[in-house]
Nucleic acid binder design. Structure first.
Lengths: 341, 341
DNA sequence: TACGTTTCCGAAAACCTTTTATTTTGCTTC
DNA sequence: GAAGCAAAATAAAAGGTTTTCGGAAACGTA
């Protein structure tokens, strides 16, 4: 047997104790309409004494607002989606908005199911977070509530999406290497079919071009996101240009593998080769030897910002388009200015 | 302006179309009470035609059940909490139960705030997931709804908790090494103030004792959970017993560091030293050279099981006590039977 | 036909709050 | 003292569903 819930205290009890009607009590508590200061105080006192908590269900039923948003993850939520999700949760949770978690696990059917459920539950808005920066199909068409996309942008230009600015971030990474005096910079990254890989390469190449520098090895070394690939890519890079003095990697895993393999081939990091990673995945970037200089995408902030914009949209102040959020270079030893000794 | 929501179709519309009263419609749709098969069909037909979705708010208001559970993370949710959380979400989401996500981020004040909010929203139950297996303060006392704890058990014996069976898991790990013919087995693990570290050591020692084998180096090497510590511990272990032929590590990070350092000191893994890790954190365990044999705690299953028990408790079939869930050894190259060549 | 049983259906209450429309109160002015 | 008016309070409706209970219809029996 579920334990018998003690009958909850309702606004009726408050009104009775304060000696007013429920209408007055409601208005007093919500600061609406005309109510004398003295009676308002009496109502508040009564509410506090009974530790009254309005029933959100009843309220939602009449107002049509549930103070609830759905958090829908398209692909299975993982390393990148989690921080975004937590950032969003943080933004909502500190207010009065609750977050309904739905992990569609990459299954379009599940996604539809969740979408129906969320709409049935009358959520006020929807935040869709992806696991990669590849654009994803829009779900906002004909939806009666606002939607924002985080990390993975919608493929529909009128939707509002928040993504890391990988082009600018990569530019910063490469400019950092240039500022350190490196002149033969290579770029190793993930599979070419990833938007992230292409954008990071684009940003890196643009920065090199602006500085009038060639790309070491003449071509971007596309491959996989793994440490294993990083090790393999080290050979490619070193063979293509034995004089290479810096490598900008598209992920921390690649960087970790590359550093390992470079050291095994007798190159010192950062003295002979400076290395910059991407993601600032701390379990990795703080454990490599030397610790990794890497680009942090500020994913929590991204999630938080997306949440704030959803909130604004719910209140009628909608934005649109793709918002590119700045990344931040975290400087550690693998690519750092010489310290004073 | 938020787009005007089209007036939702209510059970009134269904009843009108089917030519019955709303009471009959409700009973027909919910399979309750006496209603002729023919009228039931008519009601269902009407509901389908209008694609009627009952308003959960109105329903909850009268039934007192929200088909919603709170998922409360005590400490900041991270590597271990996430899979548990996703497992739970999966179990609920495939039913009709929605999950309200609340990340207290290790802040007791936030936790209280969330607890109040969840209770105000009349959730049917609560699942509390932790980030370590250390017991945590109970929140179930005097709560009108059932609570289950996942990963981090409650410190109150009458609460129901689900934790990985680290003692048995470690025993299995060590027995695996023994079965491979290893006789000088060391154990390197995390800080002694972690329940996980102590329990894993306990299981390892028990298995050695049962087999009549000594612990290489005579004492458990406690330290930290990091790769860095794994590297350092390798020296300790090799100095204490140069003939050591296996190391059971309390985490994959430790194992990764240890393998790296052992190789640098000229030991081959697994030929000279077999290594077993813990956690099966795949980004690490699949990337070490050789790939890591490691203990998987089945965290998703743990979360799913906890969710199922919460569900049972909501329906009045409550369990209690600490449930220890079995772990599963994942065999890769770092500690494997010789393959046929 | 009268009557007792089932079987099925519907009116109305209940859940709790907000909002609208209406009434009451308190005050000012003539 | 009446009229007028603004401010404050209340009654009642609305929101959508489930559930209780009474009543009607159908059916069989005397």
């Amino acid at each position: 047997m579920p334990p018998e819930r003690p009958r909850a205290v309702t606004i009726n009890d408050v009104a009775a104790l304060a000696g007013v009607s429920i209408a007055t009590a409601s208005k007093a508590l919500n600061g609406r309409g005309q109510v004398r200061a003295e009676t308002r105080d009496r109502v508040f006192a009564a509410a506090r004494e009974l530790s009254f908590q309005p029933n959100p269900l009843a309220r939602s039923l009449v107002t049509g607002q549930t103070r609830t948003v759905g958090l829908l993850t398209s692909d299975s939520v993982g390393r990148f989606g989690i921080p975004v999700m937590l950032g969003a949760e943080d933004a909502f949770g500190s207010g009065e908005t609750a977050v309904l978690l739905c992990d569609a696990r990459g299954d379009a059917f599940r996604e539809q199911h969740y979408l129906r459920t969320l709409l049935a539950r009358r959520v006020d808005g929807l935040i869709v977070v992806g696991e990669s920066t590849d654009p994803r199909p829009s779900i906002s068409r004909d939806l009666p509530i606002p939607v924002v996309y985080a990390y993975a942008p919608s493929d529909h230009p009128e939707d509002v999406s928040f993504v890391p600015d990988d082009v600018a971030g990569s530019g910063d990474a490469v400019r950092h290497l240039i500022a350190l005096g490196r002149r033969r910079i290579a770029h190793v990254t993930g599979p070419t079919h990833y938007t992230a890989a292409r954008e990071r390469a684009e940003g890196a190449l643009a920065a090199l071009q602006t500085a009038g520098l060639p790309l070491s090895g003449d071509r971007v070394v596309y491959g996989a996101w793994s440490q294993r690939w990083g090790r393999h890519a080290a050979e490619i890079v070193l063979n293509a240009d034995p004089e290479v003095d810096a490598v900008f990697c598209g992920s921390d895993q690649i960087a970790a593998g590359l550093i390992e393999a470079a050291r095994e081939r007798g190159r010192r990091v950062p003295d002979d080769i400076a290395v910059v990673g991407y993601d600032n995945w701390e379990v990795l970037s703080e454990e490599t030897r030397p610790p990794l200089t890497t680009m942090d995408m500020n994913l929590e902030l991204l999630g938080r910002t997306a949440a704030q914009h959803l909130f604004a949209a719910i209140e009628g102040r909608a934005t649109s388009g793709i918002h590119r959020m700045p990344c931040r270079l975290v400087i550690r030893d693998s690519a750092a200015p010489p310290t004073i000794r």
